[in-house]
Amino acid sequence: MTVADALLLALGAVAVGSGALVVTSTHLVRAGLYLVVSLGAMAGLYLVLGAELVAWVQVLVYVGAVVVLLLFAVMLTRAPIGPSADLDRPAWPALVVGGGVGLGLAALFIDAFRWTIVALPVPGTTERMGAEIFGTWVLPFEVLSILLLSALVGAIVLSRPDIGAPKEGGA
């Protein structure tokens, strides 16, 4: 077992463990904080695999923005300190779906790769990422930016009932 293997296993355990705590913890805000740990561990996984840029994008976008927005919303509405007894959690369906998907994927991967050893790819430097995105993947990239732009415009229109016609919005 190499250092990379050990790190992957450890980070994976952290990610899965804190992920499980997210859905089982009865402390609302703590669940959000466990999500930070889980996403951080996933960024660590990317780092071990040499995808530096993706790892820091994960930290910037998910830890720095998405989870923070989530925590922000929870604190604005209802965030008791201590356990909440009245959380509405369908445990069994969630367990069946989550466990089923997890086990199914695991079985699929184990069956597909067995003991094949896959060497780590060349580290994903910024230059290589840029060349890939704006070379091979430029069409999906542009389609995604149009999707994001229309979501932005939609958000502006929805949050401003005073404007009649959709306003040009890019910022």
């Binding site: 930070v36 530096e52 820091w56 994008v57 930290v59 910037l60 830890v63 720095g64 923070v68 430097t125």
Partner: peptide
């Protein structure tokens, strides 16, 4: 290689 990105991403953790 991604120093600037790294710095901005890590600074973003402060809000947590």
């Amino acid at each position: 290689d991604v120093g600037l990105f790294f710095v901005l991403a890590v600074l973003g953790i402060g809000v947590v």
